[in-house]
Design a binder for these strands. Structure first.
Length: 263
DNA sequence: GCGACAG
DNA sequence: ATCTTGTCGC
């Protein structure tokens, strides 16, 4: 893949206020509605997929692991990408990139963005959709890492977060039935009209027993995907685990590749 | 000043 | 994110 908006690439050397200004530009450039070149329905329904004349869409999951130097600091990120088509893994790539800034809530893309772009540039196939570990529109300035990457690359993207950064669930999200979703709307901490639909809490997996339960994922549009479709995709790409397959595979590949460096 | 805070 | 064995439950 290649960068289509070099001017919007996250630059870790910017001042904090400049980063926030760039995020507002990203949010303005982002499209929070469906603008895909494939029918997302083929992802979940094998019947629909078999009816299609086209090849199945390529969905790539992206995740990072971190490397520590002798002093014990996290000085490099290993960004991993796993491209899936149908139920086949068609490519896996990774890149190791130096880190310059620490994790700061709300500024994640300035820490992990460059490593992610490095890894995606290694990919030979062209993904139709990117799934990121983190938020998309569910962000203080509506420009989470999935949105930032989607806009810079101009590719449809979705944010898959394991916890909620901001915004408020319309209802209780405790112990939701599998397959259900609860709207997440903008609150005072978000740079959007109060009540704006930012994404969904999505329950991809749930236990049967009343004893324990699984927390939902927080799914939001990155770029060129609407909130409903983002939630649909999260459910359709989650087979046996809580996380969508591409993201889970990228997660484990990031660890696997890291271990491969040590020995 | 206090609280909240993706990975 | 990361440090990490056993253990509870289906």
């Amino acid at each position: 893949m290649h960068v289509s908006r070099p001017d919007l690439v996250p630059d870790a050397s910017l001042e904090r206020s400049e980063m926030e200004t760039l995020q507002r530009e990203i949010a303005d450039a982002a499209v929070f509605e469906d603008a895909l070149e494939f029918d997302p329905a083929v992802l979940g329904d094998p019947l629909v997929a078999s009816t299609s004349e086209d090849d199945p869409p390529i969905v790539a999951g992206v995740d990072q692991s971190f490397l520590t130097n002798d002093a014990g600091d996290q000085d490099r990120a290993l960004s991993a990408v796993v491209a899936v088509q149908g139920d086949e893994v068609i490519e896996r790539v990774h890149a190791v990139t130096p880190l310059s800034i620490p994790y700061i809530p709300g500024l994640l893309s300035f820490r992990e963005g460059a490593p992610i772009i490095d890894a995606l540039e290694e990919l030979s196939v062209e993904p139709d959709l990117l799934l990121f570990d983190g938020s998309g529109r569910i962000h203080f300035r509506q420009a989470g890492i999935a949105t930032h990457m989607g806009v810079v690359l101009d590719v449809p993207s979705i944010g898959i977060a394991k916890s909620l950064l901001c915004g408020s669930p319309r209802e209780d999200v405790e112990n939701l039935p599998e397959g259900t979703r609860v709207p997440i709307e903008a609150n005072s901490r978000v740079d959007a009209a109060e009540g704006t639909l930012l994404g969904y809490a999505v329950q991809t997996r749930q236990y049967d027993s009343p004893d324990r339960h699984i927390n939902p994922l927080y799914v939001s549009p990155g770029h060129r995907v609407g909130p409903e479709t983002a939630a649909d995709v999260a459910l359709a790409t989650s087979s046996s685990y809580k996380l969508p397959d591409p993201v889970r595979l990228a997660d484990s590949y990031a660890d696997e590749a890291k271990r491969g460096l040590g020995e």
